[in-house]
């Protein structure tokens, strides 16, 4: 996977580093935020492949530097520890995305299909390939194990219906980054609507899929992001 990553994304990555003047520390903070958001979100969030690319680049650069250092250097061991920590976050992030793709693959692919021109892709090219392959493998597995022995009218499975959708109505914790006024909160039972104001640092607990809320609060989180 790492080979594919570096081969594929190298072009736009170079453009990116020219535009962005992000320090490596900010980059790591971005990765950590993406990691936590992905972890706590009930659905797959959009891919952050530039961040992943840049972090990979930093890590390989640092590792190649370390190759030249002789053994037992005190500095090198500190660097190694840091690399291990970053690598953990990175792989945990990518793994949690893959788990979600495995869990919701027909829906993920469906959304990818219905995505309009110019809209950013939900999946990185590698993740897209993974999702397609997973779909094909699941299908052929089901066919080999059970379906081909079924009566002919029962030999197809509608994947979209067979695999549960991500539950967009689930509750989340969120941490407020900027002050937002008049956020709409709909209680489940009554028709009444509630307007609240949130300040940075507050941690209200709200259901995810409230579209109005999503617009009002473009930047939520370490805990979760309200993005569809």
């Amino acid at each position: 996977m790492s080979d594919a990553l570096s081969d594929d994304g190298s072009d736009f990555n170079q453009d990116d580093t020219q535009e962005d003047v992000m320090t490596p520390a900010e980059l790591i903070a971005k990765l950590e935020e993406a990691w936590l958001n992905e972890k706590f979100s009930p659905e797959l969030l959009e891919n952050k492949s530039e961040v992943v690319e840049c972090v990979m680049e930093q890590l390989t650069h640092m590792e190649s530097n370390l190759q030249r250092v002789k053994k037992g250097d005190a500095k090198a061991s500190i660097h190694r520890m840091e690399i291990d920590r970053i690598r953990y976050v990175l792989s945990s992030y990518l793994r949690s995305r893959l788990q979600k793709i495995e869990k919701y693959f027909p829906h993920v692919l469906e959304r990818e299909k219905s995505r309009g021109e110019g809209e950013p892709s939900l999946l990185s090219p590698e993740e897209f390939a993974f999702a397609k392959e997973y779909y094909a493998n699941t299908e052929s597995y089901l066919k080999a194990v059970a379906l081909k022995r079924m009566p002919s009218n029962l030999q197809t499975v509608d994947m979209i219906k067979a695999v549960p959708e991500p539950c967009l109505d689930s509750f989340v914790f969120l941490r407020v980054k900027e002050r937002q006024e008049n956020i709409l909160v709909e209680p489940e039972t009554e028709d009444q609507r509630l307007l609240i104001t949130v300040d940075p640092g507050d941690i209200p607990e709200i259901k995810t899929a409230q579209r109005s809320h999503q617009e009002a609060c473009p930047s939520s989180s370490p805990f979760i992001q309200n993005k569809d």
């Binding site: 914790f173 909160v185 209680p187 489940e188 507050d202 370490p222």
Partner: peptide, 16 residues
């Protein structure tokens, strides 16, 4: 009380 949202200021990540 079936509230729609709750404010949990000052809570830490571990507590949540």
């Amino acid at each position: 009380q079936q509230e729609a949202y709750a404010k949990l200021d000052n809570l830490t990540l571990m507590e949540i």
